[in-house]
């Protein structure tokens, strides 16, 4: 099995601070980590490798310093790593990012399975995983909480839903995005850390990927962020107290009065 795990370097969620003036994330001095959901994807990839053999390749798009997240993934057991980095990739939205990652995966070569976290904790879009699958024209399943079986070119999984889970089967190669319920990530190994120090990591830009310059980075982005702001605080607040039954009664009364429900 060749498993590709897409990861993203994000600011440590435990240390997030906002710039009071610009309302953007302060990134200076904030430690970077691998997106926590991607750690579950990596762990699942490593477990599949432990069971069936093969190799795990990690891939990320980001600035040169994102290399450290790839080295970290190697310390956990990933075999190879690829960094997609180019000034031209800057400012990419999920549309351009999934295009670039898909090009990167084409460059990496044949694979059986792509694993992604369900979303990144900084952007929270959950669009890049499915976006990659669409561009590679392979099936995908989101919110996977368990892989039941792999074999004969098929994979059977459980997809976490609000009211339980779906059991789905699809052909390989496929892409899965995983939720935190799927496993408990391991700790890095000493041998992995030693290897992470010296392993060569391929770096690909627009040229190496033979990507369309019009479709990467800010230029290739279909959306544009006009402004980032914290939601305004509502001045008027009202507490409804009492037993749950009383609270529901009061709430119904208020909503009816405001003609929000009839």
């Amino acid at each position: 099995m060749h498993i590709i795990v897409c990861i993203k370097q994000v600011p440590d969620t435990k240390q997030v601070r906002l710039d009071e003036k610009t309302h953007t994330l302060i990134r200076e001095g904030v430690e970077s980590i691998i997106n926590p959901y991607d750690m579950y994807a990596l762990e699942e990839g490593l477990r599949i490798k432990d069971r069936f053999g093969g190799k795990v390749t990690v891939c990320t798009m980001g600035p040169p310093q994102a290399e450290s997240s790839l080295r970290e993934a190697i310390s956990y057991g990933a075999d190879e790593a690829v960094l997609l980095s180019d000034r031209a990739f800057a400012g990419a939205d999920t549309w351009a990012t999934s295009y670039t990652l898909a090009k990167g995966i084409e460059k990496i070569g044949p694979f059986d399975l792509i694993l992604c976290g369900k979303q990144a904790v900084d952007g929270d879009t959950a669009q890049v995983g499915p976006g990659i699958a669409e561009r590679l024209a392979i099936p995908y399943v989101t919110w996977v909480r368990k892989i039941e079986e792999i074999g004969d070119g098929l994979i059977r999984v459980q997809r976490l839903m609000d009211d339980g889970y779906d059991r789905l089967e699809t052909t390989l190669p496929a892409l899965l995005t995983v939720v935190k319920e799927i496993n408990e990530p391991r700790v890095p190994s000493l041998k992995g850390k030693m290897r992470a120090k010296s392993q060569k990591i391929g770096v690909y830009g627009t040229k190496e990927l033979e990507a369309d310059p019009e479709r990467v980075g800010l230029q290739g982005s279909a959306t544009q962020v006009i402004k980032v702001f914290p939601p305004p605080r509502l001045k008027e607040r009202e507490w409804i107290e009492g037993t749950p039954v009383e609270q529901v009664g009061q709430l119904l009364g208020k909503l009816t009065k405001l003609k929000l429900i009839i």
Binding site: V187, P188, S189, L190, K193, M194, K197
Partner: peptide, 19 residues
């Protein structure tokens, strides 16, 4: 040394996250 630091980090992670 760098290697000693690695040993410490791994054991630290196991202690805090797993134990």
């Amino acid at each position: 040394s760098e290697e000693q630091q690695m040993i410490k980090e791994i054991a630290q992670k196991i202690a805090d996250e797993k134990i």
